[in-house]
């Protein structure tokens, strides 16, 4: 069934700077075993580890001046 959503690869968008974009919904398992979830159409995962809402991006990766 080529049209079944479960057969469609989930796309992850990678950029040099900024969050990983993943098609939602997603569950994320954190280091301490906690599982957090987001059902947004796309989810921005923090890669700089500066987010105050980790694992979700809160734009803390931006340059400061």
């Amino acid at each position: 069934m080529p049209n079944s959503p479960s057969d469609t690869p989930r796309r992850v968008t990678v950029r040099r700077k900024g969050p990983l974009l993943v098609e939602g919904p997603v569950e994320v398992e954190l280091e301490d075993g906690t599982i957090v979830s987001s059902d947004r159409f796309r989810v921005a995962l923090c890669t700089c580890r500066r987010s105050r809402r980790y694992p979700w991006c809160d734009t803390s990766h931006r340059d400061r001046a």
Binding site: R15, P19, L21, R42, V43, A44, R53, C57, D58
Partner: peptide, 14 residues
């Protein structure tokens, strides 16, 4: 809006 717009920004720009 902190979380939603962090996503929206990426989608709007890209």
């Amino acid at each position: 809006h902190v979380e939603a717009d962090a996503v929206h920004e990426q989608v709007v720009r890209q």
